[in-house]
Design a protein around this nucleic acid. Structure first.
Length: 641
RNA sequence: GCCCCCAUAGCUCAGCUGGCCAGAGCAACUGACUUGUAAUCAGUAGGUCGUUGGUUCGAAUCCGACUGGGGGCUCCA
């Protein structure tokens, strides 16, 4: 007999060789039906794999992230089985589960494969799923494994096996398909009831662009048809909220082939939105002790040689701008920090001056690969709500905490209630990627963690995500659809002060080196606005809305009163337009609703006579009529940030 | 950059396997209506079917290249 400890702490005795499924059966048959895999001493196992020693066991179902992973991983195998049946001789790369679904990378040789082929594969998968074939695990020797895939002539699997140790290799088989796989898998293909293959994409073998490009097929699957339907509905909703679509419909921004790829053009309405956000941030920054500065869009090449950006990005970026003078070269600035360093140096600093905080809405240019460009979220020219804090080493943590407060204040003001923070650390395996001394990195990494802890942020640490000059704290927000976006960032930098030879005079009358903190609560205006658009589906908070009101006269008879009203509201800094078209009121309302204008003010005979406005709220409907002053009071109450 | 998909009027789209002057709705313009809470009616104008080669008696429709857009490109058996 062996002792099995369950998550609730209870301990039960079972026969040696008991499986996760058996344990579930001992609890309830319903649970047993839903068990996808089992976590045995922290390792996820097949639910039917025998347990031979005392163990802690957690049964995993669709409700557990790891259960889903098992489910999707098994779905990937089902995809492979279907592909092998339909395309004999296909070679397989890897086929893992991902955050939402799974994929398999395949090599079809000369055969073409496109999205129109997905339907047939999907059908085949469902067909195979209905056969309820078991996933059977077997341990194989390296030699046998190599033999099997040599016979199949699958060089990808052979390469994978060659990297593995003998004695640790397992195969899984379901139906007629056998794959090299660590597992675990669900008991049978029968649990996979609903499948949708989403897309076909190219993916380099092992992510290396020098190696062969394989065909990647993405899919998702569910235990119930209903869950697939719901998932597809969420995707539909996401499509409706897509900032590229809403940006066009609400006339916020556009792109022009003639201006250039990835260079957004801000339309009048988008500009209002953007300027509102900027002034919001300006005010918050002034309160937090920042000083605004302005620097040019270009800087001499020497500036970036000093900063290290040239060495790091020079070849893959916009190329230097030449002048009539030979050897004179300027770069479009990819970052604002070097300019700010020079501002710091413009006057000698005392320890009493620190910290100094220079803020700038600085537009920077980075040559993203054309395939990386995406709406406003990945562009080649964008404006950061940038600032650089120069402080003494003993002030770093305090300053860092203050920045965290500013970021959280910003998120709260804009309705991002769900966020997480990621501490991005150096990749310890590849220190050559970074500049700066080890001790400085260690210190900075520790201080970031301390500052985050001090504000009670739940953080996850990720190695290899640091900037090349220092570790960072990145904020990820979840939007209304539960999607995660990386927005604000705070970065500690001991390196640039070194490179720019920044200093201050200490109390000891000696020269000391300041520490720099780079930070951008929004990240970039473009990216932030894109996320904001999708988060609120274009229904911006009143204070941000490009048009806050629309004045809709019933007929041209009330034009004079409408004009007067318009002027009066403008005087109160209430933005909006007067719809004086020769249209019926129903039409004007509809158009204003479609444009998501928060308040519609309808004026006709009654209103003109008694100096009233009939107020309609976007998405809510008629609020009844009120005096102009009453409306202004109501408006001001609603427009508070 | 690379792989797959897409490209028809300002916008959203139809145009099947190549064959009468390329269509619709919305927007625009003109006129009528003078309007009470999500689209008034009628008319006019608007496209060398992304560009460019080719196949063909004939191409928006088939093939190639280019340009642009979309989905992807180390969540490692």
């Amino acid at each position: 007999m062996i002792k099995i400890t369950l998550p609730d702490g209870s301990v039960k005795e079972f026969e040696k060789g008991v499986s996760g499924f058996d344990i579930a059966m001992s609890i309830s048959e319903g649970l047993a039906r839903n068990v996808l895999s089992a976590k045995v001493n922290g390792e996820v196992w097949d639910s039917n794999r025998p347990i031979h020693t005392n163990a802690t066991v957690q049964l995993l179902t669709w409700n557990d992230a790891e259960g889903k992973m098992t489910f999707w991983h098994s779905s990937a195998h089902l995809l492979a089985e279907a592909l092998e049946a339909l395309y004999p001789g296909v070679k397989f790369g890897i086929g893992p589960a991902i955050d939402s679904g799974f994929y398999y990378d395949i090599d079809l040789g000369d055969r073409e494969f496109g999205e129109e082929d997905l339907g047939a594969v999907e059908e085949k998968m469902l067909d195979l799923a209905r056969q309820k074939n078991q996933y059977i695990r077997s341990e194989v020797s390296k030699a046998d494994a190599l033999k099997y895939f040599t016979a199949k002539d699958d060089e990808y699997k052979l390469e994978l096996i060659n990297d593995l140790e003998d004695g640790t290799i397992t195969f899984y088989k379901q139906g007629n398909f056998t794959d090299l796989c660590r597992g675990p898998h669900v008991p049978s293909t029968g649990v996979i009831k609903a499948i949708k293959l989403m897309s076909v994409a190219g993916a380099y073998w092992r992510g290396d662009e020098k190696r062969k490009q394989l065909t990647r097929i993405y899919g998702i699957s569910f235990p119930k048809q209903k869950e697939l339907t719901e998932y597809l509905e969420i995707l539909e909703e996401a499509k409706k909220r897509d900032h590229r679509k809403l940006g066009k419909e609400l006339e916020l921004f556009t792109f022009s082939e003639k201006v250039g790829l990835g260079l957004p053009l801000w339309l009048p309405k988008g500009t209002i939105l953007r300027e509102r956000l900027e002034s919001f941030m300006r005010r918050a920054q002034i309160k937090s002790g920042y000083q605004a500065v302005v620097t040019p869009h270009i800087g001499s090449k020497a500036l970036y040689v000093t900063s290290g950006h040239y060495e790091k990005y020079g070849a893959d970026s916009f190329q230097p701008i030449k002048t009539p003078n030979e050897d004179e070269e300027f770069l479009l600035k990819p970052m604002n920090c070097p300019h700010h360093c020079e501002i710091y140096k413009s006057k000698p600093k005392s320890y009493k001056d620190l910290p100094v905080r220079y803020a700038e809405f600085g537009t920077v240019y980075r040559y993203e690969q054309s395939g990386e460009l995406h709406g406003l979220t990945r562009v080649r020219g964008f404006t950061q709500d940038d600032a650089h804090i120069f402080c003494r080493p003993d002030q770093v943590k305090e300053e860092f905490v203050k920045v965290i407060d500013l970021v959280l204040y910003t998120f709260k003001a804009l309705g991002f209630e769900n966020y997480t923070a990621q501490v991005s650390l150096r990749d310890p395996e590849n220190k050559a990627k970074y500049i700066g001394a080890d001790e400085l990195w260690d210190k900075a990494e520790a201080e970031i963690q301390e500052a985050a802890d001090e504000r009670g942020l739940s953080t996850i640490a990720v190695k290899g995500e640091a900037a090349f000059y220092g570790p960072k704290l990145d904020f990820m927000v979840k939007d209304a659809l539960g999607r995660s976006w990386q927005l604000g960032t705070i970065q500690v930098d001991y390196t640039l002060p070194e490179r720019f030879e920044l200093e201050y005079t200490g109390a000891d009358n000696q020269k000391h080196r300041p520490v720099m903190i780079h930070r951008a609560p929004f990240g970039s205006m473009e990216r932030f606005i894109a996320v904001l658009i999708e988060h609120c589906a274009g229904n911006f908070p009143l204070w941000l809305s490009p048009d806050q009101i629309a004045i809709l006269p019933i007929s041209e008879k009330y034009q004079d009163y409408a004009n007067e009203l318009h002027a009066l509201l403008l005087e109160k800094d209430i933005r909006g337009f007067l719809d004086d078209r020769d249209e019926k009121i129903g039409r004007k309302i509809r158009d204003a609703e479609v444009q998501k204008v928060p308040f519609m003010l309808i004026v006709g005979e009654k209103e003109a006579n008694d100096r009233l406005v009939s107020v309609r709220r976007h998405g809510e409907g008629d609020l009844g009529s009120m005096s102009i002053d009453e409306f202004i009071a109501h408006f001001e109450e609603k427009s508070v940030i």
